[in-house]
Design a binder for these strands. Structure first.
Lengths: 225, 225
DNA sequence: CGCCGAAGTTAGCTTCGGCTAACTTCTCGG
DNA sequence: CCGAGAAGTTAGCCGAAGCTAACTTCGGCG
């Protein structure tokens, strides 16, 4: 069941492909390269290798898509990342934002044994500290119907579910704004201001495009959990 | 104070140089290459690079010695390794022998922040699970006057202090034999048998050359702690 | 003394994963 | 319908760190 480990680069490419289109739609070279902070030729090059190895397929000019195998590998890496992130925050008391960067490195180094020990000690959590679901050991990822905070119409109320990682400054900003998983948020004045956990926040919803929320049918105001 | 991180290879070479001669005497290419499981030319090559970078000096044909800077770096890596090893055993319940291999990889990946969080949570230990002293954060390593079990004369009694790592099978053998830090041992029948923690063990002391002990002046027998 | 073998080094190749420069191919605006 | 610019690819290079093959050097023994 446990297949040989891929190189760090490969794991990063697969993870990025998954992150960009959830493993469904095809991904173009440019956004992929941008996310991985490499040049386009480097990405083209690596995609060719991954294709040779049966981890992605190349379609029309510039498009790539994960194969079933590639998807499995991507989810394995994502699982590593999220378990690690959770462990670093819960067990080692790392800063919410810092944990992401650390996990980014460690996800390529921890063995299955160590990861499982961490997972076990955490009580096999289903979510990482940003609210993202953690793929289970078979690579199954819970699907949720969320929308980005940006997409919320004025007056709408929602519960924050996921605070996208990837940008450290962004996460710090969210935490300071109270935009953490479980917090209640209401869009005010046509998106020009927010109300987070009952406190008014003079910032446009647009600044928090990485926040995904679950819209509430009711308009009841509640304090955050 | 925190200098830029070296490559994994470099850290491994420096650690090996330190391990082979404690940072004092010069090390020859062949044993170094053997320990790192690379060929002699590879070692020569890397030593040249390390010399260029001021981490080692090359003396007579084939000899290398850590510089003060190289020694500091080696001790930093050694510290990482030993803190990690301790953490993996104490906090994550890993097998005594397995922890070594895991630490060997992770020592090149953990950040100072994570390492310090682990160290802190462990209560800033002074010894790893094999009994080896852990260099402090300034790179100072406690020196101890120990002898190898092999060197003990028949009839001598000693306390096990360090059980050398590096070989997984060896460590497993030691643990099964009761040769763990703190155990009392007596050499019987001219080295052909041992008494460990009061139990007779029909194995030559020579099979445990990686075990370092503190000889006891008195010949009193005690049970192990 | 001379020569053999061990130890070390040099030279040159390989893979990995980047990079730049230059070319091709699409798409879209005028 | 054509041409500009964006997107992608090709070609060729780089550095890290390994490797083998072949050469040098040295130490010791017959």
């Amino acid at each position: 069941m446990t297949t040989a480990r891929l190189t760090r680069s490969r794991e990063d490419y697969l993870k990025a492909l998954f992150a960009l289109e959830g493993g469904t739609r095809a991904v173009h070279v440019t956004p992929l390269a941008k996310r991985l902070r490499v040049t386009a030729p480097s990405a083209t090059n690596m995609l060719a290798r991954l294709a040779r190895e049966g981890l992605v397929t190349r379609a029309a000019r510039g498009e790539a898509r994960l194969t079933a195998l590639g998807l499995r590998r991507a989810l394995q890496t994502l699982r590593r990342h999220r378990v690690l992130e959770t462990y670093l925050v819960q067990a080692l008391g790392l800063d919410w934002a810092a944990a992401h960067d650390e996990a980014e490195v460690l996800e390529h180094a921890v063995s299955d044994a160590v990861l499982d020990a961490m997972d076990c000690q955490l009580g096999r959590p289903h979510e990482d500290p940003h609210g993202h679901p953690i793929p289970d050991r078979r690579g199954r990822l819970a699907q949720r119907a969320l929308v980005t905070l940006t997409a919320l119409p004025a007056g709408a109320v929602a519960v924050v579910r996921e605070v996208g990682d990837g940008d450290r400054a962004f996460m710090t900003r969210c935490r300071r704004a109270g935009l953490v998983p479980g917090a209640h948020v209401r869009v005010l004045e046509g998106g020009a201001a927010l109300e987070v956990g009952g406190r008014r926040l003079a910032a446009a919803a647009a600044r928090f495009s990485g926040v995904r929320v679950e819209p509430l049918a009711s308009v009841t105001r509640r304090r955050r959990a």
